[in-house]
């Protein structure tokens, strides 16, 4: 599948933003009042990533001016559900954030609702891909699980970084750091399982696609067109599969190994925010590689005709 940069940026940014928002929602339960600059920056980054991601996803639309129509078919379409949940999450999250930041009311109920809505939105993003039966690699229940776990892990290390940058910490923050490292580890281990489970022979073949398999082995003799077309541009991408193994390794190194090492470095140091900032950047870079591969590696059933 063709990896569209707008969609890669959208899923990575809104995933991390919604993860951070979910973590802030749950934070209202335990953390209590926080300094104003921290609240403003954290909520600001969470909303900027989420809204920025959503806006970037409209760039690949043929008619962005009609995007509002995408809210209407939530009964059958996961893309529509994602849009509806995203809007509701942003509205509820904004009320929750405003109450907590400006009026010092950390509503636990609103916080929990914001957290649940954020994660449901991320789940819906994953389901957009998981529902597509024509792409074997995506059509698995583990796909939305990966999206969810990456969102949680991304949100956690963002929270860890911002927390370190805006609060005076005289002692190491073991608890929060450990939780973030575990979240990272779980997300990437599940992702590795997802990769392993995806390496199998395709469901649809030239034989089943043409229905001629009972007669013999089928291969394309002549393409229907001498030039390219929309289908080949959108689904005929296979450079990703060529370098898949190397890129998977790069994704794991950037997204998991490097951030965990940087978090470990940050725990005892006095200026730990720097290390954690680098951990956030490494993780986001790893996520971009992972997301690029998510599209580039996927084989669409229509390629059985080419």
């Amino acid at each position: 599948m063709h990896p569209a940069y707008s969609v890669i940026f959208f899923t990575v940014a809104s995933g991390a933003g919604l993860g951070l928002l979910a973590f802030m929602g749950l934070g209202a339960l335990s953390v209590g009042a926080q300094p104003m600059p921290f609240m403003l920056t954290t909520f600001g980054i969470a909303f900027a990533l989420t809204i920025g991601g959503l806006l970037s996803s409209t760039f690949h639309l043929g008619h962005p001016e009609r995007a509002w129509r995408a809210m209407t078919q939530w009964r059958s379409s996961w893309l529509s559900r994602e849009g509806v949940f995203a809007i509701i999450t942003l509205i509820v999250g904004a009320i929750f954030a405003a109450l907590w930041t400006f009026m010092d009311i950390g509503s636990a109920i609103l916080g929990i609702i914001t957290a649940i809505l954020s994660l449901v939105t991320v789940w819906a993003t994953g389901m957009i891909y998981a529902q597509i039966k024509a792409v074997d690699l995506w059509h698995r229940w583990l796909t939305p699980v990966c999206y969810l776990l990456f969102s949680v892990a991304g949100g956690m290390i963002l929270f860890l970084f911002l927390h370190a940058a805006f609060t005076d910490k005289t002692e190491p923050v073991w608890e929060l750091s450990s939780v973030a490292m575990i979240a990272l580890l779980v997300a990437w281990v599940v992702k590795v399982f997802w990769w392993m489970g995806g390496d199998k022979s395709p469901t649809s073949t030239p034989e089943s696609a043409t229905g001629l398999g009972s007669l013999g082995k089928v291969r394309l003799l002549e393409r229907p067109h001498t030039g390219s077309n929309y289908l080949l541009g959108e689904m005929g991408f296979h450079i990703g599969r060529k370098h898949a193994r190397k890129l998977r390794l790069i994704a794991v190194m950037l997204g998991a190994v490097l951030p965990i090492l940087l978090i470990l470095l940050a725990i005892p140091a006095p200026f730990d925010a720097l290390w954690l900032g680098l951990a956030v950047l490494a993780h986001l870079a790893g996520m971009l590689v992972e997301r690029w591969l998510f599209f580039a590696e996927a084989r669409h059933a229509v390629m059985s005709y080419y």
Binding site: G62, H63, A209, M235, V302
Partner: peptide, 26 residues
């Protein structure tokens, strides 16, 4: 008139029966 040109239906079709028009973007 209602199509936003997101292309998801073309992804969902295993037969490649749908093509986005490069000029009209529907």
């Amino acid at each position: 008139d209602h199509c936003i040109g997101c292309g998801l239906c073309a992804w969902a079709c295993p037969y490649g029966a749908r093509e986005m028009d490069a000029v009209e973007k529907v």
